[in-house]
């Protein structure tokens, strides 16, 4: 095991900058996917509570299906299938980054939709009734009364989702997305030091995710207190 120390001493100077750059790719991927997933999740959550049975059904099916599959399968489908099925259509041949974002957003949107829905439903029905009784339209009631309160409720689970998302970007290495795991795999095979490289990669993931975890816990404490 002491070899490890030697290995690091020799290589850290060249590995760290390389893997550090790849971390930026990971963070970028996380950030963009997160935004897209939130958008998708909000939309699907609102569809899910729609009064139209068909719309509700579609949203429900999407949620069950996207949550029931490994993210990896979704990523493979987004990345490999369009070029094979529609070879002429150039814009469908997503780059690995784009495919990763789309795949993670599809998967994450379903997860977030459920989080948003339970946040909205956690609100006492009386809130909506009070708003409507004052003459607010359902839209105004949602905008001024329901969503502001629901946002407070969903913040902790959304923060936890974000942490999970950061870790899930590692899976995108399997479709060659430009992030840390991919770089680590290359480095591990080129340097013949898999243990050292992967441990370092794990450490870097930890460095990225731990602040988020602390932030999420802080949020949870703050929000529980002010309720």
């Amino acid at each position: 095991m002491l070899d490890l120390v030697e290995v690091y001493r020799e290589n850290i100077a060249s590995w760290l900058p390389e893997m550090g750059m790849a971390c930026l790719g990971t963070l970028k991927l996380t950030f963009v996917s997160f935004l897209l997933a939130i958008a998708v999740g909000l939309l699907v959550a609102l569809l899910r509570i729609s009064t139209h049975r068909t719309i509700r059904g579609v949203a429900l099916t999407y949620i069950e299906v996207a949550r029931g599959m490994p993210a990896l399968v979704i990523l493979y489908i987004v990345y490999f299938v369009p070029p094979q099925v529609a070879p002429g259509v150039k814009w469908l041949a997503f780059s690995s980054f784009t495919a990763a974002v789309i795949g993670l957003a599809i998967h994450g949107g379903a997860i977030l939709a459920e989080i948003f829905r339970s946040g909205i439903e956690a609100l006492h029905r009386g809130q909506r009734e009070a708003a409507l009784s004052l003459g607010m339209t359902p839209t105004k009631a949602m905008a001024y009364i329901i969503l502001p309160q629901a946002t407070r409720i969903v913040l902790p689970p959304v923060a936890n989702y974000a942490i999970g998302l950061l870790k899930d970007t590692a899976v995108c290495s399997l479709i060659a997305a430009p992030e840390l795991m991919l770089r680590a795999k290359d480095l591990a095979s080129s340097s013949f030091q898999p243990m050292a490289v992967f441990l370092l990669a794990a450490a870097l993931y930890f460095v990225m995710s731990y602040p988020l975890a602390l932030g999420a816990r802080y949020l949870e404490m703050r929000l529980n207190y002010s309720r």
């Binding site: 009386g126 009070a130 003459g135």
Partner: peptide, 24 residues
């Protein structure tokens, strides 16, 4: 529906048993 009712509800005041104040 609730959108059309909103207008009419302006003129009716309803006080709930559980108050239903907006906590935020």
């Amino acid at each position: 529906n609730d959108y059309e009712l909103a207008r009419e509800r302006r003129e009716i005041g309803f006080v709930f048993q559980r108050f239903n104040l907006f906590p935020h």
